[in-house]
Design a protein around this nucleic acid. Structure first.
Lengths: 354, 354
DNA sequence: TTGAAAGCGTTACCAC
DNA sequence: GTGGTAACGCTTTCAA
């Protein structure tokens, strides 16, 4: 491996001078700069980012902590992140958290890496102690879809999202509304599903409905699992007329189950999801739209700004709006009054069969 | 920042001993190990991966070079990569190449980073000189969906894929078959589209069809662009009866254009794509299935094996199979003899309208 | 079994 | 402007 001292020797200059040329410091004469450049070229020298990092304490690297980045919603966020990062001078290190190892340890090892200039953490509430350590070390941190003290945060109001979805169903006359969401005590500590469930409960309570525990099911955030849970719901003596799934992925599982049960959506069963991933548009899924792409982009932009400023980022909480996107999987209870989109709705059935 | 010497001092031992404990070397007495561990704990010490890397020349990091990782097909590959990497002791550094800067330079800076133990390169033929340098440096490299000398490679036969798609259309009686693909001289150097186009040409020639340059269109790998190109094709005096798009993303654009033109797919226009991304199943798109997920998984596994062995990986070429997936966007020319899937086919139209 | 010290490849400070 | 040299935090001989 050819090092800076090889270059220095070959150019007949000192190491410091080579370094100055590399970082195009103003204080170097055109003549020497030429010699150095020539030597660099001749030797085909490449500076070691590692050594530079060790020396400067800066690494040209941003870490993104993202659980299950293979999930559609995480991926959407990542697209926004990539866009914001576009030609920023940072490499992207992806920490794909999937295993429910002790989160604290996991996180410790991440922050311990000491190789990232900034950290973007998604959907995973970082342990307070780790967060504190990072802040103490002046490593800017931005949270997306997770709460934490003292750092900028990009959030949505999941409770309100749950209310929006449920309210939609209630307004359509539904009362036996089921809920399918993540395990509340999932090892990774996701909370969005639980918050959405709270919104669901609130709206039902406001509508004067009693608690019906048998209509609420929890499982892993997974299409197949949700599908199985939906099977159970649909086999209930008193079947729900609508299902609110805590995510579009899970809603997709519900649609599958409905098909298996020979139910027509939305006539026999209304389904509302959450997220509005790309697929949902094609499926015609009614869902609560959240700005996944924007959340990633904004989060990364906040981080880059902080990095550029050199100042710790202001702990502002950015609240991204939600809105209901009404498509073709919800209709009034009983399938009455199909509404203006009836034709499309009818076509859906065949198409979602594949 | 607390360093190894802080720990050493506190534990009343030498730095070397602390290092040995850290790397659980066998040669350290339980007593001292205990003292060191205690000090580490008390000081909440975290080793710097950077310094370790500089010292050992190994970095616990794997680089993945992937152009447009936000594209559906790239993402599918990445899912496989993540799966294979699951709990391997490596961090994933993602190099998302999007800008058509000089590829060589780009690559140079990547390899120059000198911070990755291995490199997985996707869809981007690395410049031979850079490849050689990496091999010389004993950095294992695996190529997926790209060709290069002397390194393991995971490939598909794109030419054959083009043949499969086109043959399907020819067998359905189509003759005026259009092609939409990437610019052959795209700045990044992708070649798959061009190869697929070659297969297309071969089959047409075998069928005794003359070259019809007006039926072949090139543009950026993008749904909107493909859609515009399809507009042109569909406005031709002698409209094609079928379109083979070099990717599902582009095929989606064709479907849009058909809808705009008031054409019913497949009755008025057959469409075949390539890749079989997740969306295609929902769209009912007939396409050539390639094992995207598997390609990423296999590529990463080859890399990890090489890393584990310490030996340069054997330059084996793994050829992943292709197969036609017939769905609901192709039928015999003229829409005759709709075949067994007719009912579904009819439903398609409404569903793809959103 | 352990401590001391020489690297690893840069940068940054201090003289000249 | 430029060269020399101490860091940066760790691993790895080499002696003891």
């Amino acid at each position: 491996m050819v090092t800076i001292s090889d270059v220095a020797r070959r150019a007949g200059v000192g190491e410091g001078t080579v370094s100055r040329v590399l970082n195009d410091s103003p204080k170097v004469s055109p003549a020497t700069r030429g010699k150095v450049l020539e030597a660099i070229d001749a030797l085909d020298y490449r500076p070691s980012a590692l050594a530079r990092g060790l020396s400067t304490g800066r690494f040209s690297t941003i870490g993104v902590v993202i659980p299950f980045f293979t999930h559609a919603s995480a991926f959407e966020r990542l697209r926004g992140v990539a866009a914001a990062l576009h030609d920023a001078p940072y490499d992207l290190v992806l920490f794909n958290v999937e295993s429910p190892i002790h989160r604290a340890e996991q996180f410790a090892s991440l922050t311990g890496r000491a190789g990232t200039d900034g950290l973007l953490v998604m959907s995973l509430p970082p342990p307070a102690t780790e967060l504190a350590r990072l802040v103490a070390r002046d490593v800017p941190v931005v949270l997306v879809d997770a709460r934490g003290d003292g750092v900028p945060t990009v959030l949505i109001d999941d409770v309100e999202g749950g209310r929006i979805a449920t309210r939609h169903l209630v307004e359509l006359g539904h009362r036996r509304i089921a809920f399918i969401g993540d395990d509340p005590d999932n090892a990774l500590g996701f909370t969005s599903s639980t918050h959405r469930e709270r919104g669901y409960r609130e709206v039902l309570a406001e509508a004067g409905e009693p608690d019906r525990p048998e209509l609420v099911r929890h499982g892993a955030h997974d299409r197949a699992v949700a599908s199985r849970l939906a099977d159970e719901l649909l086999a209930l003596p008193e079947r729900p007329t609508a299902v609110f799934a805590a995510s579009d992925v899970q809603a997709t599982g519900v649609l599958e189950a409905a098909r298996r049960a020979g139910l027509e959506v939305p006539r026999d069963l209304s389904v509302v999801g959450f997220d509005d991933i790309e697929l949902s548009e094609y499926l015609g899924l009614t869902t609560v739209h959240q700005r996944l792409y924007d959340s990633g982009e904004l989060g990364m932009r906040l981080l880059l700004d902080a990095l550029a400023d050199g100042t710790p980022p202001a702990p502002v909480v950015h609240d991204l709006p939600l809105r209901l996107v009404e498509r073709r999987t919800t209709c009034p209870v009983g399938g009455a009054r199909p509404g203006p989109t009836a034709r499309r709705r009818r076509a859906t059935k065949g198409a979602s069969t594949t």
